[in-house]
Design a protein around this nucleic acid. Sequence first.
DNA 1: TTCGTTACCGGGAACGTTCCCGGTGTTTTC
DNA 2: GAAAACACCGGGAACGTTCCCGGTAACGAA
Lengths: 382, 382
Amino acid sequence: MVKCPHCQQVDAINKTGIVRGKQRYFCKSCQVHFSFPTAEATRPMRRHQVTIVDIAKELGISKSTVSRALRGQSDIHPGTRQAVLDAVKQFDYQPNLLAHSLVKSRTNTVGIIVPEFVSFFFPKVIIGAQNVLADAGYNVVICHSNESYETEVANARALLASRVDGLLVSHTKETRNFEHFRAFQRRDIPVVFFNRFCEDMTVSKVTVDDQAGAFRAVEHLIQTGRRRIAHLAGPDSLANSRNRLNGYRDALRQYGIAEEPELVISYDLTLEKANIYINHLLNLPQPPDALFTINDPTAIEALQVIKSRGLRIPDDIAIVGFSNDPVSALVEPGLTTVSQPINEIGQESARLLLRQLTSEEKFEPQTVVLPTELIVRGSTVA
Amino acid sequence: MVKCPHCQQVDAINKTGIVRGKQRYFCKSCQVHFSFPTAEATRPMRRHQVTIVDIAKELGISKSTVSRALRGQSDIHPGTRQAVLDAVKQFDYQPNLLAHSLVKSRTNTVGIIVPEFVSFFFPKVIIGAQNVLADAGYNVVICHSNESYETEVANARALLASRVDGLLVSHTKETRNFEHFRAFQRRDIPVVFFNRFCEDMTVSKVTVDDQAGAFRAVEHLIQTGRRRIAHLAGPDSLANSRNRLNGYRDALRQYGIAEEPELVISYDLTLEKANIYINHLLNLPQPPDALFTINDPTAIEALQVIKSRGLRIPDDIAIVGFSNDPVSALVEPGLTTVSQPINEIGQESARLLLRQLTSEEKFEPQTVVLPTELIVRGSTVA
DNA sequence: TTCGTTACCGGGAACGTTCCCGGTGTTTTC
DNA sequence: GAAAACACCGGGAACGTTCCCGGTAACGAA
């Protein structure tokens, strides 16, 4: 009853096992195995995409010609080209970037990994970078590591797998192992760090003059008569929090003020912890008369806590933040803060990456340090 | 001097033109054209990627087997599998997602297009969506249309070209033509609108009860004694600004207050225009005693303007915003506002998309309306 | 023994592009 | 009027995967 598809014989057929749920046969005379295609297994009925060959067939030309017409380059008759363009419109053809990238080995895409983006800073950086990159014809895919090392590694892996041409990163506060970024370097995929960076990786970096900014902030506090200046510092894992701490110390030293260890607290950047430490500082036998925080959200949290305790700002205690978030102008009193050129950070990072992407020869990694500026508002002077 | 590569003859060779900068010859006896490969044209020295076949060659097995081992499925000897895994680690092999997506015709990626993301709202939505999507194994690429219709179209085109499996959109305030989104529908790529949506497209939508929220806000103003309530409305192109306006009108009508046309101003959501109109309202012969704005940034701008004019809030004029941005709790006085479940908007949109992506049969588009809640702060009651 | 079954594995065709290379007319040049 | 140049176009091999299908050895049962 089973007929060999080759010799059409019915006998001399053996069963030879069930493979993937389908009976297989063996024809002894033909010395060949065979099985019968099941009805639905013919094709998974994949939705047909209109491709370059569909256009080619329609116009009776070759796919090479269609490709040439689409890329709008050389070796194409204007008439043919127009015909292709018309057909493309008619069939609503969309080029498949996947195939394109596969053969070109480049995706015209750069990845951006940021640790968070509900605060003002990172979105603004991304927009700055994106504008520059878009002008250069690059797409951008944004990843959000959520301050989690695992997520960051997963993000990096995903970007590597999708073969981005370059990477812009600000790492998480947890990140101490940078192997997932070195994987890009090994493949000659340029990486640029911004804002937060690994000091012992030889990559391009964009940052601001954190130390000088912090110095100016603390100097300003000293010059307005403060002596017990507390500092809520960021985690030690972040270079910029180390630098801001250094700026703080520089100022104290230069003005001959001894550093009180109890006034310097390094924490994990969460508002919960910030709240705890602010209260702790205020509860000290000798509370500080000024507070310099690692960033604006922390300063604003401090502002709320201090006001809720009925203390006067800046009379009883002065506050300085860092980065001049728009909110800092809206709170009452306005927050004195160190502004950084957020948009430029993004733009400069993107430009650095682009230069690296387009340079033919070996590119020397480069570090760009942008200036900071002290913005004085009501939280330090009445 | 020129030898035919076939017959090795030297005479009977003609030049037959220079094509792409290279001399071409014709051998009359072989009846064949030929040219000589230039040295550097051999290969563009493309950096070699380590692929599945490299691993296969190294282990002396076929690429099919390596592929099987990597996908960790059936029909693979545990020993072979382990050997492959070891080699993968040793050679630092990274799978090429482009090739994978090309053959599978799916990218496991969904695109998100938002009109802006410096304000609190959209980043938060994105995070909500991303969490849900990541759990389901999807990657996310975020596009930022910057409230520009052209950019939005470009974004949509790029996402289509890179073959995302689904799309989450909040369109720009300029968008009146939705053809670029219909292109996804034509290809059976599910689209979910959130926050801002096109009413006459049959797609899934996630929104909040704008009308009820606005009603509650205005009702609250009326109940606290206000009668001349102004409304700074959003552009008519956005369904949610229309709905909020409707809620405003409902409340006035229900409480028997006639609508004053001069008190309802629709504008383009920029702070510059907001400032102008706020001042305009305050300069009216009969200025309003309350202001309900389309969103929180506008309300906060109003708050600043009003305070700078020396007017008291809420005594002289009360303010209500919309969406409960974190800033609204920080300004002084605190801003009464209508909160919406921002995170849930993202999550729900993602879930809707996922259901559509995984459902076998035809999926009926669905609209989810999430509740709003009035948050009363100092800008309306002392 | 001999057949049926299981457990693996390899070959090769997709997927949708680009690019190289070689063809064929037609036009220019000497 | 032939040789050289030009203007177009087509074929087919990449790119790096997955998937189908068929092969082979080993083993259990009849």
